[in-house]
Amino acid sequence: MDYAKLLDEVVVISKSAGQAILDVYQDDNFGVRVKSDDSPLTEADLASHNVIESALKKLTPEIPVLSEESTDISFAERQKWERFWLVDPLDGTKEFIARNDDFTTNIALVENGRSVLSVIYVPVFDVFYMAAKGLGAYKIEQGEKQRIQVRTVPLVNDEKHYTIVASRRHGLDKVEALCQKLPHYDLSSRGSSLKMCMVAEGLADCYPRLAPTSEWDTAAAHCIVEEAGGQLVRTDFEELRYNTKESLLNPHFLVLGDGNEDWRSLLSL
């Protein structure tokens, strides 16, 4: 499979889905409803889903698509898939409703439980994050494409000073309690998969996620983080895998930049 060519195609699809989201974002009525798990759903979620699903099925008709808005596919069927698209049409729906611009479209190609190609698009800012196995991770901003990578944790008075990013809506108290074990840190919050992208491009050193997420929340960023030189691991430091169980919920996890020994120590305290 030509990952480079496929990435270019998925960027175009993400752009179209982002425009569908912005068309709703500019309206006064988002058509908000509540799903069975009490999470919100808007017309933008559905519009983006329809664009992405249709385009992916046309691009790669042989590869099934699993989207947050089409999760009625049984595990008995899913476990037969060696390769599939894993999609979050609108990651950060609550941020979308709050009109704070921190929302994305997430598209990942999963092969044998691992994310191997992905594009994250930030519609409001027209920014792309993208990666594929063996090709590196990149950011496209204002039409310019540049390679991104995690950073080495900076030192302050010969001690590491961590920049931690967390969800503004989920598990922040647990993250703050964990961070207080560090000698020096700054803590900020962002919405959607942008937290993981911040680690990938060296703007943050760690994103601890100590609250529920689903597999479509992490798959796209997972490939980007790894190709940027970082890690996305469970809190026991085992690899996070996809479509290996009936539930599509993730365990708690860490997104790490350069090194992880400090976090092993912290989590064992």
Score class of each variant (00 low, 15 high):
108 A>F: 06
164 I>N: 01
25 Y>P: 11
91 D>S: 13
60 T>E: 14
238 E>M: 13
32 V>I: 14
31 G>Y: 04
81 W>K: 02
14 S>Q: 11
222 H>D: 13
99 R>F: 10
47 A>M: 03
217 D>E: 12
148 I>L: 11
80 K>I: 08
91 D>R: 09
215 E>L: 09
183 P>R: 07
168 R>W: 12
235 T>R: 00
120 I>K: 01
60 T>D: 11
223 C>V: 15
108 A>Q: 00
238 E>P: 03
207 Y>P: 10
72 D>C: 10
205 D>A: 04
132 A>Q: 01
187 L>W: 02
161 H>M: 10
19 Q>G: 04
117 L>D: 01
240 L>Y: 02
37 D>G: 09
21 I>M: 10
185 Y>F: 12
23 D>M: 01
21 I>L: 13
185 Y>R: 02
52 I>L: 06
157 N>I: 11
6 L>Y: 01
165 V>M: 07
167 S>H: 06
130 M>T: 05
145 K>T: 14
90 L>A: 07
103 F>M: 14
256 L>V: 02
232 L>I: 12
161 H>N: 14
68 E>Y: 09
146 Q>L: 13
206 C>M: 12
127 V>Q: 05
146 Q>Y: 14
90 L>D: 00
162 Y>V: 07
154 P>Q: 04
90 L>R: 00
262 D>S: 02
96 F>G: 03
181 K>I: 06
253 F>C: 03
14 S>P: 06
246 E>A: 08
46 L>R: 00
151 R>Y: 08
181 K>F: 10
